[in-house]
Design a binder for these strands. Structure first.
Length: 868
RNA sequence: GCGCUGUUAGCUCAGUUGGUUUAGAGCAUUACCUUGACAGGGUAGGGGUCAGUGGUUCGAAUCCACUACAGCGCACCA
């Protein structure tokens, strides 16, 4: 069989993905096995695959594939999220291109367009995940607006309302003037920006020429001022008690009030109070019974009530009003300052605090079990550092604003009479009944226009994907819930993770998952977050085309411990591809051997025993890394096991001479080991492992690596591994000397030793790998030979006349110095009485051994110098 | 401003309750090898006063304090 020299992933990957699908290997049904469940963090239905998804889903697939091989019933539920704001924005933009504005449409018409869009373009990302090799149970694919899932959202809303946990009220909320909706506190990102602090003087009413200067970063809100506030202890303003000030431009008279909230040191110590546009000012207004004047429209423009600058954007007005104030002589100065401004997470518009009627979920009570069960370890965070962040958030959590002024999403099931009385019910019929029961009269009902926050549906995800609301005692939910691992980004710890935990306890009385693995952010080499707008993100599908999915998966995992950002470098994918090629060529080598019936040579037998033991040792390490969710370490151990131990050592040991056959037993062993390696590789590199699995032997129906069983650990022969280490050091030394002395590998040389306590098990292998004619044991040290030491054993290579004595002297001298320095440090330790009396006996013992070894070495080296 | 993490080789990171030969890995780099699995390869090197200062200890990359820098989270200073 002709095997190509270079592994070609493109030819292989689609084939095996279809094969797995055909065999239905990704599908899971409850059975007697232990379940292992992951629910995907549903990507936005508008999303396209980016590097963050690649990392996240690679990790999930690795865990799922390994669990499947461990004999568990692995179930990975995929799906998408309806993403209210993002999707609605996308549909609005699309309609605009067609010349249709949202305002022209009825809600029903708009939703029709939205669903059309979703059916046509939504969920591309799931198709892309297949290229990565994601072994999701596609039959279970869910969408957060599927009828059953929407029902669950509405039922939960009604339930929480009836429990008194949801309320409706006018509150100061974060308003997105671009998205035209309220957003939750978590959707506001505070950024530090350069601003100006304007000092504006207000005239004191009924005074000749008395003024009070306030400082503000938002002069456009002056028009909404309803008071000026100073600190009661402030000497500068004490005389203004009972006086009023005149707001410039609009010339409104407002009271001067006194409150300890004021920081005397900031600005001038005088604050303009604008209750409609600042949460603190609003609180002051309630306390001091002030008027509330809202001068901004939902779009962030000046409203008619402002009387000036009407219809202009707030930022335009900010500049203009500063100019106008200056012209009036009322702008004292403008100072450059840095301050924090809130931006919408979705639209990046500057958030305006705005008073409006919204729905809220009380968080204090429901968050209790969610906090407890993370603190007590019932739910594990990986890495643990996020527990602190989580705790801090949970302890200070505000009520959750859950209404959004959008159409795309689950509509709030509240029904209003003409008079504004309302009930919460699933259908209009039910609402009518409820109203009648309450004796409320009405002629027609109107449903609330708002929809619920998207996170108000995704917080139910781990339950709703198994129909845990529709049918709370069904087979699936009972079997798969709680799920095992959740893999997600720390950015949505509060948005999503915390709330899923809350919902889990509220609705199942149980955690939604046991472990939360928090990935890092994928950044470019300069440390910038990869984003479409920066254009610094490679297209994952291009990468897959170039390096193979296996290569990219390895690249993603090579350097991404949990919680650490990943500085993405295509070089990592290249390394992944090279690794695939290495595996491929190891296979090519073995496959190319002729086989005979001859008996197995001793060297090969020893090599096999050693590799078997080494494999078990490594497997233990790998399993341990997995248990600790150290994915990149598990991969690195696998990488070294394959590259170094198997390819560089084992195959070199057993490789038959050129064009010579190999014995049957050795070949069988080598293939057997290879199979185990493929299994360990499979979670990381599903495609190449399946490909070689099938090429290496005839396989029966169903004998596929994806459903094979994870290798069981066996004996680790510590002595054998140690003996190998010594042997490998001897081989390395010989290679080193060959290089230094320019002795070509093809020239056979002799190795001599005088040490008798050395294990000789690996001698045949040393002979082979060092290309030695013989290894002989002498009674006394030879003269004029090249010498080297491994541990405390001395070795000699007699190599004719051509020894460069000076160079040799220098080399030995150098080694001698090192050992003397080392001995000195050990000796000073042992000479320290306190060390000897305080340190643990084993430690002292060990130091003594170090001393003895160093002394022996020094002695030998000195003799070598003399012998030259 | 408050809080939480970090800071170890050119880069990305390990270093598991302080003591496994005066610090390890992968990548990168250097030299050499190379018709016989793999030039996308092999072999062997070089490279670090563990951010700084002080302390605890017989002993500190590891524990403590402070400083500097970075990242993240939270917060109403206009």
């Amino acid at each position: 069989m002709e095997i190509p020299k270079v592994y070609d992933p493109a030819a292989v990957e689609d084939k095996w993905y279809s094969f797995w699908l055909e065999k239905n290997y990704f599908h899971s049904e409850p059975d007697e096995r232990e379940p292992y469940t992951i629910v995907i963090p549903p990507p936005n239905v508008t999303g396209v695959l980016h590097m963050g998804h690649m990392l996240n889903n690679t990790i999930q697939d690795v865990l799922i594939r390994r669990a499947r091989m461990m004999g568990k019933n692995a179930c990975w539920v995929p799906g998408t999220d309806h993403a209210s704001i993002a999707t609605e924005a996308k549909v609005v933009a699309l309609l605009k291109q067609k010349g249709i504005s949202k305002e022209q449409l009825t809600r029903e018409e708009f939703l029709k367009y939205a669903w059309e869009w979703k059916e046509k373009y939504g969920g591309i990302i799931l198709e892309q995940l297949k290229k990565l090799g994601a072994s999701c149970d596609w039959e279970r694919t869910r969408f957060t607006m599927d009828p059953d899932l929407s029902d669950a959202v509405i039922d939960v809303f009604i339930d929480l309302f009836r429990k008194g946990q949801i309320y409706r009220g006018v509150r100061m909320v974060n308003w997105d003037p671009q998205g035209l909706t309220a957003v939750s506190d978590e959707e506001v990102i505070h950024k530090e920006v350069n601003s100006k602090l304007y000092y504006v003087k207000y005239k004191i009413e009924d005074s000749q020429d008395e003024w009070i200067t306030i400082a503000t970063t938002r002069p456009e809100t002056i028009l909404a001022d309803t008071a000026v506030c100073v600190h009661p202890d402030d000497e500068r303003y004490r005389h203004l008690k009972g006086k009023r000030a005149i707001i410039p431009i609009i010339n409104r008279s407002v009271p001067i009030i006194f409150d300890e909230y004021i920081t005397m040191e900031f600005g001038t110590g005088a604050l303009k109070v604008t209750p409609a546009h600042d949460i603190n000012d609003y609180n002051l207004a309630i306390k001091h019974n002030l008027e509330v004047i809202d001068v901004l429209t939902p779009e962030g423009k000046l409203a008619p009530v402002a009387e000036h600058y009407v219809g202009q954007d707030r930022f335009v007005v900010r500049k203009q009003i500063a100019k106008d104030l200056d012209a009036m002589g009322q702008l004292v100065k403008a100072e450059d300052i840095k301050n924090k401004v809130g931006y919408s997470e979705r639209t990046d518009a500057v958030i305006e605090p705005r008073l409006s009627m919204q729905w809220f979920l009380k968080m204090d009570k429901v968050s209790q079990p969610a906090l407890e069960n993370v603190l007590n370890g019932n739910i594990r965070f990986i890495p643990e550092k996020f527990i602190n962040t989580y705790r801090h958030w949970m302890e200070n959590v505000h009520d959750w604003c859950i209404s959004r002024q959008l159409w795309w999403g689950q509509r709030i099931p509240a029904w209003y009479t003409e008079k504004g009385e309302y009930v919460v019910a699933k259908t209009q019929d039910e609402a009518e009944n409820l109203l009648r029961e309450k004796g409320i009269k009405f002629t027609s009902l109107r449903q609330d226009d708002d929809v619920l926050d998207t996170w108000f549906s995704s917080w139910l995800w781990p339950i709703s994907v198994f129909d845990g609301f529709k049918d709370p005692d069904n087979k699936d939910i009972n079997y798969y819930y709680p799920t095992n691992d959740l893999i997600t980004a720390p950015e949505i710890l509060f948005f999503w993770v915390a709330r899923m935990i809350i919902a889990g306890y509220e609705y199942r009385g149980q955690k939604p998952f046991s472990n939360v693995y928090l990935t890092g952010i994928v950044r470019d080499k300069q440390g910038r977050k990869m984003s479409k707008s920066l254009g610094n993100s490679p297209d994952p599908l291009d990468l897959i085309a170039q390096y193979g999915a296996d290569g990219v998966r390895v690249g993603m995992l090579l350097s991404s411990p949990a919680g650490n950002d990943l500085l993405f470098d295509e070089g990592l994918c290249e390394q992944g591809r090279n690794f695939a090629n290495k595996i491929w060529n190891a296979f090519r080598l073995i496959k190319g051997w002729e086989v005979t019936d001859q008996a197995q040579p001793e060297t090969n037998k020893i090599a096999g025993e050693w590799f078997s033991s080494r494999f078990n040792e490594s497997l233990k390490e790998i399993d341990d890394h997995y248990a600790k969710y150290r994915m990149s370490d598990a991969l690195m151990s696998t990488y070294k096991l394959v590259w170094d131990d198997y390819c560089a050592w084992y195959l070199e040991m057993i490789k038959p001479d050129f064009q010579k056959p190999v014995d049957k037993k050795t070949l069988e062993q080598a293939l057997g080991f290879f199979e185990n390696l493929l299994k360990v590789l499979h979670p990381f590199m599903p495609f190449i492992s399946e490909e070689i699995w099938h090429l290496s032997r005839e396989r029966k129906e169903g004998d596929d690596i994806i459903v094979s069983s994870w290798p069981k650990g066996g004996d680790v022969k510590t002595d054998l591994n140690k003996a190998f280490t010594t042997a490998s050091e001897i081989v390395t030394s010989i290679r080193n000397i060959r290089k230094q002395k320019n002795i070509p590998m093809r020239d056979q040389i002799e190795l001599q030793t005088i040490s008798s306590d050395r294990g000789i098990l690996f001698d045949p292998i040393i002979r082979r790998l060092g290309n030695l004619s013989m290894i002989s044991t002498l009674q006394e040290k030879p003269k004029g030979a090249i010498t080297f030491m491994v541990g405390t054993s001395e070795f000699f290579i007699p190599y004719g006349e051509s020894i460069d004595t000076d160079a040799e002297k220098e080399r030995i001298q150098k080694e001698l110095e090192y050992n003397m320095g080392f001995l000195k440090s050990v000796q000073s330790k042992l000479a320290n009485e306190k060390f000897v009396s305080n340190a643990k006996p084993e430690v002292v013992e060990n130091e003594k051994k170090k001393q003895a070894d160093a002394e022996a070495k020094i002695k030998a080296l000195k003799e070598q110098l003399e012998n030259l």
